[in-house]
Design a protein around this nucleic acid. Structure first.
Lengths: 207, 207
DNA sequence: CCAAATCTTGACCGTATGGTCAAGACTATG
DNA sequence: CATAGTCTTGACCATACGGTCAAGATTTGG
């Protein structure tokens, strides 16, 4: 009677092993994509046997799905936090900073997401058209209200959000390229990136 | 004595078939990544048999490698064209526009590249550290000279380039997400994106 | 029109992969 | 400490995949 899907009613071992497996799977999936990853790789990474992995998760897809659903919560959180404020420019810059910190601290999650979207988002297309679309629309309306009130310079809210997503995630998803291009000046890339992005969005948004 | 690697000394059939195969392979690789793609898929897409594919190309890797090497030329071209000018802001904005047009007109190429980078760039890491690094450094120096001359606002040249790459390619690589988020307002997304990006980089760079 | 060169493919091979199973090892609890 | 429940895994299976090959079809050039 193992094979629990949620977090409820789990043995100590079940909890430990599912966490271990999910972490290993995140390593592997984020590096090779879904089809490029094998259960054997995940098993090796987790230090378990393949049948043991399949004792806790019904299939490779189940592991992937659980990672994606967990990811989406964390993913949407910083945007959810963005709210009305007397200083909208600062509010947006905080969001940019948070997103960049996530790219720095959770690059595996960012790459997992990027892989999924690149392949056409087969497993989360509904979440994109549903929750993500709705939340983004909500925040786009907020941004539009700032524009209308003259608190920030006129800007297309949706494309502003796209610019924030793309520029910040770039430092996680394209890290190899960033490092290759920066050469020796790579050690403090997240700090210089933070300063640059802050300056860029501030220039764009300051009325 | 078929199996020619370059473009020289090819039969009419060789030329037609290699082009056909490369086009089909671009479709497949850009959609599923290297490991997620199969020769059978490419064969199906091209309307040829699997052994026929392998008559023209030694292996799956060979096809992929040829696509990547062709891609890199096209990839670097717009950046190469950016040169000294009396109106550096306009010069950079032209570059942004060109990159966005490439995302619109060559989304498969952009995704192929993104897939490769996401997986750690195993096949083109040398090109990144070599030609791409050198060209980027050259153009970063050019941008720095504009900054030093007071022709554009102070900006980190490398991060400016990263911002241009990420914001423009986003519309190719994350197209599914862009469409899902925009919902019904998706038909003219490249025009609105062009206006937004032009405004953003102009605001950042205008002294 | 014919022979040489080129092109095409059905059948096949070895390996990798997702997943199963039954038998044994371990753990918690009365 | 016994035993029911939980956990672990070696061996195995069916399928998919990259790649080969030999034999036949087609094109090319004289």
């Amino acid at each position: 009677m193992a094979r629990a899907a949620g977090t409820k009613g789990k043995t100590r071992i079940q909890q430990e092993k599912t966490d271990l497996i999910l972490d290993a799977a995140l390593n592997v999936f984020s590096k090779f994509g879904f089809r490029g990853s094998t259960i054997d790789q995940i098993a090796l990474e987790a230090g378990l046997s393949k049948p043991n992995i399949l004792y806790y998760f019904d299939s490779k897809e189940t592991i992937h799905a659980m990672l994606l659903s967990r990811l989406l919560e964390k993913w949407l959180e910083p945007l959810e936090r963005m709210q009305d404020s007397n200083d909208p420019v600062a509010e947006i810059c905080v969001y940019v900073t948070r997103k960049l910190e996530m790219a720095r601290d959770y690059p595996r999650e960012s790459r997992l997401f990027a892989n999924e979207i690149l392949q056409g988002a087969p497993h989360i297309i509904n979440e994109l058209s549903g929750p993500l679309h709705d939340l983004t629309q909500l925040k786009a309306d907020l941004i539009q209200s700032w524009v209308s009130a003259g608190k920030i310079a006129p800007v297309n809210p949706h494309h502003l959000i796209f610019s924030i997503w793309s520029t910040t995630q770039h430092y996680a998803d394209f890290d190899v390229q960033v490092k290759a291009v920066l050469g020796t000046h790579t050690y403090n890339r997240f700090e210089t990136a933070a300063r640059h992005l802050n300056k860029m969005f501030r220039a764009l948004l300051t009325p």
